Computed example of a mutant assay.
Amino acid sequence: MTEISTGPDRPVNANPHPSGSVLTDCVAAAIHAPSLHNSQPWRFRIRDGVVDVYADHSRQLEVLDPLGRELLISVGAAVFTLRLAIRREGHLPELRTFPDEAEPDLVARVTAGRRAEPTPGVEALAAAIAHRHTNRWPFTRSVVPADAIEQLAEAARFEAATLTVAGAASRTAILGLAEAADRRLRAQGGYRAELTRWTLPGTGRRDGVPPSAIGPWSAMETLPIRDFGLLQPHLQRSVERFEPYPTIMILATAGDSPRHWLQAGQALQRVLLTATRLHLATTPISQPVEIPDVREALTNTREGSWAQMILRVGYGPPATATPRRPLAEVLLSPASEPGE
């Protein structure tokens, strides 16, 4: 895979690989990708115009994500952001997934290829990286325009995934499944302990979900947004009415292997950045795809479609950014091992 397709290429004279500092800046952009519970399960290595991307399984959520599916979706989101950042720097990114069987945690190798001037579409999408935040606040009742919905669906198609809007009946069914999945997760052994790991604040903590990003209580409990304040009763949280008829979209891939999960993450990030560019707010709703039999109800294997993520899309107030680990924690030296 090469180009971040947001318009026709405008090639310029070929130049050597970008400097290490330029690629470091690209990695700095990549770590702004979304991840389950803001776990940031990725590491990077830079050498000779190439960035290797590793899955960091020490940050896997064993209760919610025993197979590592959501971990790879998170890493895939970082891979797309890295590709986009390299493209913004004027190089065509070349992607190889799982390039070395001897290194199973090496999930992607992104090479800064030939020079090509970034298109306006690339510039606009890249500008959204720093402004994309998960929004757990109520959205307005404004209808998302059909043109915007099509642009989101097109963004998913660019990354070989599908994004479909749930009709009224499907939306009701999906929200019901999500609510049921949320109840089952809360009753699952280890769920609260895992939630504690990623939500309770700590001195200087640069991961997890901080109190500022938790959002309000839902007055009518109409939306199954994960309650990150479950274990923090001391929080002074407002009670709000959420939109009664949210726009719900299903992101799906044509298979359900680790490669497809990585692909889903790239599609997810492209969709989220496109939504940000369109001034839309987004909330990933992952509970329905975290319970196998609930996820199966959202999946149509006859048509070769596996549900990977549910998205809530609309117009909402500005959301709070979540912290990011410093580069020193995620950037490997050229000679080090990923687990060091």
Rank of each mutant, 00 (worst) to 15 (best):
R226C: 06
D227C: 06
F228Q: 00
G229C: 03
G229H: 14
L231I: 12
P233C: 05
H234R: 13
H234I: 12
R237M: 04
S238G: 15
S238F: 11
V239R: 15
E240D: 05
R241F: 12
R241V: 04
E243D: 12
E243C: 05
P244D: 02
Y245M: 09
Y245Q: 15
P246A: 03
I248S: 01
I250W: 04
G255N: 15
P258V: 11
H260M: 13
W261K: 00
W261L: 07
Q263C: 09
A264G: 06
G265Q: 13
G265R: 06
L268R: 10
Q269M: 08
Q269A: 11
Q269C: 08
V271M: 08
L273H: 05
T274F: 04
T276D: 10
L280R: 00
A281K: 09
A281I: 02
T282N: 07
T282F: 00
T283F: 00
I285V: 15
I285F: 02
Q287G: 05
P288A: 13
E290Q: 11
P292W: 15
P292V: 15
D293Y: 08
V294R: 09
A297I: 01
T299W: 00
T299E: 03
T301C: 08
T301S: 12
R302L: 08
A307I: 10
M309G: 07
L311A: 14
L311H: 06
Y315H: 12
R325M: 14
R325W: 14
A328C: 13
V330S: 05
L331Y: 04
A335M: 14
E337L: 09
G339V: 11
E340D: 10
